[in-house]
Computed example of a mutant assay.
Amino acid sequence: MRIIDLSSPIDASAYEPDPVGHEVLSPREGALHMSAEMREHFGLEFDPDVLPDGEFLSLDRLTLTSHTGTHVDAPSHYGSRAGYGDGVPRHVDQLPLEWFHRPGLVLDVARDEAGVIGAADLEKEFARIGRRPEPQDIVLLRTGASAWAGTARYFTDFVGLDGPAVHLLLDAGVRVIGTDAFSLDAPFPTILRRWQATGDPAVLWPAHVAGRDREYCQVERLANLEALPPYGFRVVCFPVRLVGAGAGWTRAVALLDE
């Protein structure tokens, strides 16, 4: 079995609208920290210099959002109410793990300019690859945006799905839709210009809003989708179990039989 990494890194040196903070305590600093913790919490004195090389363990402290890097959006991210079930959308720690280890399907929706992908565009892709999604397949959208990861362009130059395109996939029984772009919706400037031109609220983040009435998850900020065949692989994208959170990071991979 071959494993293909589909995850983008969390890198404090890369451009992010919400910058990542990454503080590293070296093994020496970790020794001093441990010594101070023993004194404060247990009243024990410990000389860190008796440790081999005077070092203990390194420690990383990070400040970031749950939408930094490759992550799974949970239904509670889309809004405070659900038009299904008991009316309360589930958080990321409440979702069935079975959703996140399923056969995958890659659709090439790359465009030269930022914009919106509709249901007709998806139908053309189904015809091109000779396959439609089956219930609970994980559908991945290759927009090409991952080429700009780590730069400001990554957040403005990509394509996203409109409402009918999302519903087409959900009607097929898809529970998880992934993209190598910043968002499953079109870029913020594209959406706002469409709304200013039409006055139609249906163009305002339709992929996310669709999740208020139909339970599904998005996997955003994937990478390396160009390394995959259109189908014939499995996707594994279990989200980190963040209690009460609207999203959780994932180390997404594809599994291909050799």
Rank of each mutant, 00 (worst) to 15 (best):
G150W: 04
A147G: 10
D157K: 01
F188Q: 00
F182T: 03
M34E: 12
A127Y: 02
S146C: 13
G21T: 08
E215N: 04
H77N: 03
V203S: 00
L161W: 03
P206F: 03
H22N: 11
H167Y: 13
I138Q: 01
I177G: 05
S66I: 11
L122N: 09
A14V: 00
G85R: 12
E29F: 12
V236R: 15
A36H: 09
R2W: 05
H77G: 00
G199R: 15
G246Q: 02
L105P: 02
P229C: 09
G87H: 05
G43D: 08
R193S: 01
A207P: 03
D73E: 14
R241Q: 15
W249K: 03
D60A: 15
L184Y: 05
T143N: 02
A82M: 07
F182S: 08
V240L: 14
I191L: 11
T151D: 05
L255Y: 07
D171V: 11
L242H: 13
P27G: 07
L97T: 08
P133F: 12
E134C: 06
G173W: 15
L51I: 05
E40S: 07
R81F: 13
Y15P: 13
L64G: 01
L228D: 12
L6R: 03
A202W: 02
L228G: 04
G163N: 08
E125K: 13
V235L: 03
G85C: 06
P27W: 05
P52M: 02
D112L: 15
D185W: 14
R111S: 11
Q94R: 09
G173I: 14
G199L: 15
G21I: 14
G54W: 12
P75E: 15
L161K: 06
D180L: 01
G21L: 10
S58D: 12
V109G: 07
R111E: 15
L6C: 08
D5W: 03
L255A: 01
G244A: 09
P9C: 08
L32N: 10
P89V: 06
S35F: 05
E16A: 13
D162S: 07
D180T: 09
R61W: 03
T190E: 13
G244I: 06
V209T: 13
P164V: 05
H71S: 00
D11I: 01
H101R: 10
G160D: 08
R81M: 08
R39I: 03
L97M: 10
G199C: 14
D60F: 14
A186C: 10
G30A: 10
V203H: 13
G163L: 13
I4G: 11
A145F: 00
Y216Q: 15
A12F: 04
I129A: 07
F155H: 13
R194N: 04
G160N: 06
K124E: 06
H41F: 12
E258R: 02
R132I: 12
R131S: 10
G104R: 01
F126I: 15
P189L: 01
W148H: 14
S80N: 11
A210G: 11
T198A: 12
T68M: 11
G79L: 09
F158W: 12
L184K: 07
E98V: 01
